[in-house]
Design a protein around this nucleic acid. Structure first.
Lengths: 116, 116
DNA sequence: TGCTTGATTCGACGTTCATCGATGTGCCCT
DNA sequence: AGGGCACATCGATGAACGTCGAATCAAGCA
């Protein structure tokens, strides 16, 4: 119905359907693939994990930069995670704090859960 | 303890830790990133979805090949999904049947669930 | 033995990506 | 104003990736 007329801008809106329930549409697959792709790099996954497991749910770049690559590369990966909708960033004074987008996590795990 | 001495060959064994619980080790991140990477392509995600949502939990290649790319490309993507441990394949007569590795799905969704 | 259909492998081509050093920007402190 | 720190952007480079047509393999059938 009207669902077809709203293109579902955010990956989060795009998926609440469990993978095993019914096959994905082309649009859904493109949005979700972008999120999976963002986590499909060891360095990015570690950065994401460091942020997600941080006490206050947020971490400054300096807290998580120790992943074995140069600082520009860390910044590059954080940007990709941000562009995929998995992270948000906020500058407070000298430091920039990153935080996991909660609904994004839910969308991915919801899709992978076998509840159908 | 002894956990450190067994390298956790399979991605499934490697991860049962929720992402938000504690940060991933280097080995864990590499194994899990390979699985996410495998789903990080729209065509592969649709193939995976088609198999996962198939009635008997398995599908022959001919049932899922209609994803808009050539047949060698389909085969290539199925191979990548197999190598990531997400699918298993079995030849029965003329056709080859693919099936989702159940524990792989569980590992990924378990990692993304926020239960900590 | 040949022929047909289903599926994988091979070789090539253009694109995307991860990585780095150098440079730029924003903020704080003296 | 000036210097120093945290982080982002730029430009380049080599590797990995997605895609295809052609060739190959595997199984069934005449």
């Amino acid at each position: 119905m009207s669902k077809l007329r709203e293109p579902a801008r955010s990956p989060v809106e795009a998926c609440c359907t469990p993978l095993v329930g019914q096959e994905l549409s082309v649009e859904q697959s493109e949005l979700m693939a972008a999120m999976f792709k963002a986590l499909g790099d060891p360095v990015r996954l570690r950065l994401f994990s460091k942020i997600a497991s941080h006490p206050d749910g947020e971490a400054c770049v300096c807290d998580i930069s120790d992943v074995g690559v140069s600082q520009p590369t860390v910044s590059h990966h954080l940007k990709r995670l941000r562009e995929a909708g998995l992270l948000t960033s906020e500058r407070r004074g000298t430091w920039v704090y990153y935080r996991v987008t909660p609904s994004a996590l839910g969308a991915m795990s919801g899709m992978l859960s076998a509840d159908a």
